[in-house]
């Protein structure tokens, strides 16, 4: 009996320890689950910012709304100046609230958003009512201008022009600041670096002229050139040729744009590309002339002496790939001009 009792006690003990074990295991499992949940919660919290909780939004929004309502209610009975000031303050606050709502739109539910918008609308109408009541408009009258036209007639110009009569615009081509040589017939003209370096040079309406521009202009424009021979030093940016015929041009430059030009030879050093548009009978050859200060002028212009794409000409009126444009050609070596004496 004793033994049995002992035995049963033993089993009870083992039974008890088994139950303990299960309980312990359950507890551990529970704890692990709780930890897991905690971790998940933390991970979620780290992704959402306190300001993005709808609770935060609602409390802030409501507090702000209440303060605006207080402002509005304080208007009744006050005198005109006070009302004006209070209304002003209320309007500013309402606008800020609207902005706050806009910024919070991302994380609000539709319902919360709609409620907030309704509240804002109410605020706006009540402030408008108070304004109407306390600061009545003058007697009804027709206004000449509507609000809409008022808006467009004042474009948001950040730099307000200060054009006075003394700075009247002069769009005439001849002006002292620009190097302009125009309206000449049968003239030999030589210009040196002092006159044209870093200048934007314009040659226009020249007939039967010989022109030498020894120097490095910043840009060069040539229009209405007839039967002329023009040699120019390295141009640091673009050369623009328009309405030129029966002429010979020699220019190093960064870009060449040739328009409305016929029967003209171009001795070219171009570091990017040359183009022709609305041209006929334009010949291209490499720039080989030389004059005493050419090396210096190249340095001033900053052009790369070793890159010359004189033969790669794009014709904007001839976009067919494969077949060459009939509007321009390379000048055969035998026909190239070698003598550039003046």
């Amino acid at each position: 009996m004793e033994a049995m009792a002992e035995h049963s006690q033993e089993t009870r003990v083992t039974g008890e320890s088994g139950a303990d074990k299960i309980q312990e295991r359950l507890q551990r499992r529970h704890q692990a689950r709780a930890e897991d949940a905690e971790r998940k919660k933390e991970a979620q919290a780290s992704q959402s910012v306190a300001e993005e909780k709808s609770g935060y939004f609602l409390s802030t929004f409501n507090a702000e709304r209440a303060s605006i309502e207080d402002l509005l209610s304080s208007c009744s009975g006050a005198d005109r100046a006070v009302v004006t000031q209070t209304l002003e303050e209320a309007t500013v606050k309402t606008l800020q609230l609207q902005k706050f709502l806009n910024d919070s739109m991302l994380f609000l539910t539709q319902y919360e958003l709609r409620r907030a918008q309704d509240a804002l609308k109410k605020l706006l109408t009540s402030s408008a009512d108070i304004r109407e009541e306390a600061l009545p408009k003058k007697k009804f009258a027709f206004r000449a201008r509507s609000k809409a036209t008022d808006k467009v007639s004042a474009p948001p110009v950040t730099d307000t022009p200060t054009v006075t009569d003394s700075t009247k615009v002069d769009v005439a081509p001849a002006e002292s600041v620009q190097c302009c040589f125009s309206n000449m017939d049968n003239v030999c003209m030589i210009k040196t670096a002092e006159e044209i370096n870093k200048q934007d040079v314009l040659l226009t309406h020249l007939t039967n002229c010989k022109v030498r521009l020894f120097g490095s202009p910043s840009t060069l424009h040539m229009t209405h050139i007839d039967n002329c021979e023009i040699l120019c030093g390295p141009v640091s940016s673009s050369v623009f040729v328009d309405h030129c015929r029966n002429s010979t041009l020699a220019i190093p430059c960064q870009q060449l744009r040739t328009h409305n030009t016929t029967d003209t030879q171009v001795y070219l050093h171009v570091t990017s590309r040359a183009i022709v548009e609305d041209c006929r009978g334009v010949g291209f050859a490499p720039f080989t002339c030389s004059y005493p200060t050419l090396d210096e002028d190249f340095i001033v212009s900053g052009l790369d002496r070793h890159r010359n794409n004189w033969s790669q000409v794009d014709d904007f009126n001839w976009l067919a790939a494969g077949t060459p444009s009939p509007n321009w050609a390379l000048i055969p070596e035998a026909d190239r001009k070698t003598n550039w004496e003046l």
């Binding site: 730099d159 054009v163 615009v169 769009v171 002006e175 314009l202």
Partner: peptide
């Protein structure tokens, strides 16, 4: 560019 028209001149032109 030294010969460039001012912003105001362009605005008017």
């Amino acid at each position: 560019l030294p010969g460039a028209l001012s912003k105001e001149a362009i605005q008017e032109a």
